Amino acid sequence: MGQGFSRVVLAVVLAVAAGSAAAQAPQVVTYKTAGEQALSAHLFAPSDVAARPRPAILMFHGGGWVAGEPAWTYPAARRMQAQGLVAIPIEYRLSGETATPADALSDACDAFAWLRAHAAELGVDPQRVAGYGVSAGGHLVAAAGLGGCAEGIKGPDLLLLWSPALDLAQDGWVRRLLGGADPATISPLSLAARGGPPAVIVQGAADTLTPARGAQAFCAALVQANGACDLHLYPSLGHLLTRNLDNQESDFDPDPVARADGEARLDAFLVAHGYGSKP
């Protein structure tokens, strides 16, 4: 990427610092090319990013590994940008004829490697890189943080997980997407025994897509491995904190009070670990 990438990052910094209207939208750059597919990173930088290295957070949308786009995490990215983080929603390969959840995990790992390799240009502190993942995106963040990346690639230093898919070992849907391969090899719960970075989880207690028992077992495994895990369960709410328990795959009706509380829990977690401040 070289000088061209540096010019793009400089343009981001100047636009945000100037407070222009264009700065309200992210700057989109390519972090990886997989075959013929260019995968994008969407940069939300705070206004003083050029003054000193800032903590960063890579953000991964949900969608069952087969749907979704980086824009789904834009609202959370803007909230974290306001707290002083460089927030970066990430595009990853969706499962289909040629890609699988294992490929998506490879993309997530490469995104963390790309960020650290370009930390100076981005104004990022490479020692403070968090990961935020929703549902299937939570799987990618957690697996990357627990040693699921190729040798030499470091995943996130903090895990922020919203209704995450953590227990994949017996998941028939994931097995089909993997073409019959064993999901346990990329399951965060299977990886948790080795320990990992501090984690915070926001989870509906009545979630039928990514059941709360997976989050509970994941947290217990991390703690047993001398790690830290804060689990926040919300009674009578389903996937993504929906109040519509009969249909948790679509027609979401998130409880606004629980959602606000969950966001506050994530914000407090970041502040406690030196990553942000209240806007």
Rank of each mutant, 00 (worst) to 15 (best):
A77P: 09
H273T: 01
D157W: 04
L140D: 01
A82P: 14
S40K: 15
A56I: 06
Y74M: 03
A120F: 06
P279W: 00
M59N: 11
N226R: 15
L158H: 07
P26H: 03
L161N: 08
L237Q: 13
L191Q: 02
F5P: 09
N244L: 09
C149E: 12
P235Q: 08
A71W: 15
A258R: 10
Y92Q: 14
V124R: 08
Q203S: 10
Q224K: 08
G138D: 07
L146K: 01
S190L: 01
A25P: 05
A217P: 02
A22Y: 01
A143E: 09
P75C: 15
A181T: 05
A23W: 10
G195C: 00
A184T: 05
E249P: 07
P254V: 02
L140S: 07
G276A: 15
R116A: 10
L146V: 03
V12F: 07
A113V: 11
H139I: 12
A225I: 03
F269C: 02
H139C: 05
S163F: 01
C149A: 07
P53S: 08
A268L: 06
L161E: 15
G172L: 09
W173G: 10
A143W: 14
V66R: 13
S20Y: 02
G195L: 01
I201F: 04
G35S: 05
A56Y: 08
L191C: 00
T242K: 10
A184G: 07
A108L: 09
Y92H: 05
P26A: 07
V86Y: 06
V257A: 12
A142C: 06
Q224R: 13
D255I: 09
A130F: 12
G196F: 00
S163A: 11
S106L: 10
A71G: 15
A21G: 11
S236R: 10
G147E: 09
T30Y: 06
F5W: 13
A206G: 08
S40F: 11
Q248P: 13
D167K: 06
D230I: 09
D110V: 01
L85D: 02
G204A: 08
L168E: 10
S40M: 06
P188W: 04
K154Q: 14
A169G: 09
H42E: 13
E263K: 00
A272E: 05
A215Q: 10
Y132E: 03
A119R: 08
Y275V: 07
H273E: 00
D48E: 06
Q248K: 11
S236D: 14
V223W: 00
A99P: 00
S163D: 01
P156A: 00
G96T: 03
H239E: 12
A45F: 11
P70E: 08
V174L: 12
L191T: 01
A272Y: 03
L241N: 10
Y234T: 06
S250K: 15
R175D: 00
S20F: 12
A268Y: 02
L189A: 02
G131Q: 07
G64E: 04
S135W: 14
R7V: 14
T33R: 15
E121C: 05
E97T: 12
G68K: 05
P256A: 06
P164S: 15
R93W: 11
Q83I: 02
D48S: 07
A272D: 12
G137D: 14
P53K: 13
W114P: 05
P70K: 00
G148S: 04
V13P: 06
A71R: 15
S95T: 13
D182F: 08
Y92A: 03
P55V: 00
L14W: 09
V28A: 04
V200R: 03
